[in-house]
Amino acid sequence: MNRQTRIANALAQALHPQHLEVEDESHMHAVPVGAESHFKVVVVSEQFGSHGLVARHRVVNRLLQGEFDHGLHALALHTWTPDEWREKGGAAPASPPCRGGSKTR
């Protein structure tokens, strides 16, 4: 099972998202082919309703701790409630291009 699938499964199981996108963006960065290091996640879940953004990101980061411990390096993260997602028209911002810093880790 690749990292993309593992991330999707972990988040789907814990957060029962109404909408979930997991994208491997490693090819945008200065890492070897197949590095599975840089990901973008959009997760829309009712469970975020009572939490601020820092708490929401911590929930997701904790669910993915095992991946961070084993080579997950960057996570562009967009965590919204279904209402917020509707207000935003159902689209997340594009991730930035690399500037070389991940070579050092």
């Binding site: 960057a74 562009a76 930035p96 291009p97 690399c98 500037r99 070389g100 810093g101 050092t104």
Partner: peptide, 12 residues
């Protein structure tokens, strides 16, 4: 990662 003048990561 880097400085505001010369950032070395797109997120930074």
């Amino acid at each position: 990662k880097g400085t505001p003048q010369f950032p070395q990561c797109g997120f930074s």
